[in-house]
Design a protein around this nucleic acid. Structure first.
Lengths: 345, 345
DNA sequence: TTGTAGGCGTTATCAG
DNA sequence: CTGATAACGCCTACAA
């Protein structure tokens, strides 16, 4: 391998000068710089990452900590974070963490110097990992939000805004009787996961503020629970004309099974999915109207916020909320029909 | 931060002894070891990753190189690789690579010493990245296969076996007229991607060996192409009673739209998906019969194969093929009905 | 603007 | 079995 010293020799300068041009950490005359640059590519020099990390105490590596759960697809998010990191000269390492390892592992991750900062996913309202990261004085950025947000950096989906917009859009079409479908994570390691909780809260608030009716269905990620949803919904909330669904599998199930029950979509029932994470909605038949989770923006935003912190721009906390992006489909329509039917029955 | 020297002082041994117990690289008396261990956890010592990497010339980091493409979900695979890596004391860094960066970036990744070895995804039959990795003498393992496999380590899905099994299972139900749906990647950076090519080849071979009929549909990942599939298929291969579908979105489209054309599933048409990468099949209505891609096994296998190479067990090439795992659904049935109808028409 | 020299925290070689 | 002591390759005051 070729080292800085060899470059220095060839360019007839000292090793520090090479360092200065490589990192441009100090001014260097155009001529010397030129000589160094030539030597560098004549020799094919690459600065050794590990040596740099050791000497500078900065590894230029970011860790992405996330719980290991089959059913979740973080792909867009993760790629965005990795891409953004790379653009800034950082690498992203994956740190899938079982919930029982939390307490111990996190601190040592930082103390071992292998990582400059941490991106934390699937944040819960009360999250032990956040506590640990604070204790370890590790720079970190949340993707998501804890309940307590004082002084912490986060990037999250604006569930409240998205919920409100979804209700607005449906209300404008005459809908007054809503159902909300959210994930039931109570029996999983993600119990306490904020998004469904925030969404439910906002949903209830909006519904009652507007004098609408609203039922809430919590659906676990088990196939049979998802399949049972359609009948449950029709039985327990028969007035419903519009479903807001934050549960990718459930929306698929609803759209594909409602017609078998004689309920036309969107003729009798409108369905809107929110915070969807895949491309599936566009391919359903009829195409699912939805608000897509801004996975790419979140991943990039989180990585960049973290890097900004690491580079010393301290300023106020980065607290960004990104609303979901509306995609028109064919599962939303006016409420008139079904309402009238029920009313006259 | 606490260093090895401090541990050594406290345990009243030399720094090298501490190193020996930490890595157990040399025999140490139980008593001394004990003292060192006590010192270590009294002080909360963690060995500095970067210093270790520099001195030993091994970063204990693996890179996962993959093309940046929205429509692909590598989540299971990636998590498996990361988990396996971690179990062996390695980290996994993500290296999303645009195809145009290929030539330059790959070599420097290794030369910079930031990475001990590489996992390569989405391999094409002729793959420039493989050439580069070889030139750089970087240890690497493919997830997938190039055409030329001499001396290469890889882990891949056994598409041939899976295709044969799928045909077998359907033939046993009386099906004789098949259609195969594969991804059309010709206009994408993944042109030359092996899986659809291998599958098509095997499909044609099996079909003709058995004297069946078989049509092949290549479907791009654009929503309208996927939506058009159903009608194309009915028009161009009207005798089809069984579809083998290696295209997640297309299977969804088929199952949801065929009934609208008066074609019952599986009454008139059986549908089997192969190499599916998500949990969606179980949630369709009717549940999609499929052979699931063994993402977890592949990820783990690839990581472990690479680590084995790095640790010096050289032996023969690791060349593992894993077949997809059958999941019974409700979209496959006997061929009788539709066959009879068409025959009598 | 450029050079000198002392770390950074480990590993590894070689004596004892 | 244990202990000095060079590397490892780069960064960064500090000096010139």
């Amino acid at each position: 391998v070729v080292t800085m010293q060899q470059v220095a020799d060839r360019a007839k300068v000292s090793i520090s000068t090479v360092s200065f041009v490589v990192n441009d950490s100090k001014p260097v005359t155009p001529q010397t710089r030129q000589r160094v640059l030539e030597a560098i590519d004549a020799l094919g020099y690459r600065r050794n990452t590990m040596a740099r990390a050791l000497a500078s105490r900065r590894s230029h590596i970011l860790a992405l900590i996330y719980p290991l759960l089959e059913q979740r697809n973080h792909h867009t998010f993760v790629s965005a974070a990795a891409t953004a990191a790379r653009e800034h000269g950082y690498s992203l390492v994956l740190w899938p963490l079982h919930s029982d390892e939390v307490s111990t592992e996190i601190a040592s991750l930082i103390q071992a110097g292998s990582v400059d900062g941490v991106l934390l996913m699937e944040v819960q309202l009360e999250d032990e990992r956040v506590t640990r990261l604070r204790e370890a004085e590790a720079p970190f950025v949340l993707i998501g939000r804890t309940r307590e947000l004082e002084g912490i950096d986060y990037v999250d989906i604006d569930f409240e805004q998205t919920t409100e917009t979804a209700i607005d859009d449906l209300a404008r079409l005459g809908h007054r009787d809503f159902s909300l479908v959210i994930e039931d994570l109570s029996e999983t390691p993600l119990a306490g996961y904020a998004p469904p909780l925030r969404t439910e809260e906002k949903f209830r608030a909006e519904i009652s503020a507007r004098g609408f009716t609203g039922a809430v269905f919590r659906v676990p990620h088990r196939a049979h629970a998802v399949s049972a949803l359609t009948d449950n919904l029709l039985r327990e909330a028969p007035r419903t004309t519009a479903v807001i669904c934050m549960h990718d599998e459930a929306s698929l199930a609803l759209v594909s099974t409602l017609p078998h029950r004689g309920i036309g979509v969107p003729r009798d029932m409108s369905i809107t999915a929110i915070a969807t994470s895949t491309a599936i909605p566009d391919l359903m038949d009829p195409a699912l109207s939805h608000y897509a989770a801004p996975g790419w923006e979140l991943g990039r935003g989180a990585a960049e916020a973290l890097i900004a912190r690491l580079e010393g721009r301290d300023g106020p906390s980065v607290q960004t909320l990104v609303p979901c992006v509306p995609h028109e489909g064919r599962t939303v329509g006016p409420a008139a029909t079904r309402h009238a039917e029920l009313g006259s029955a």
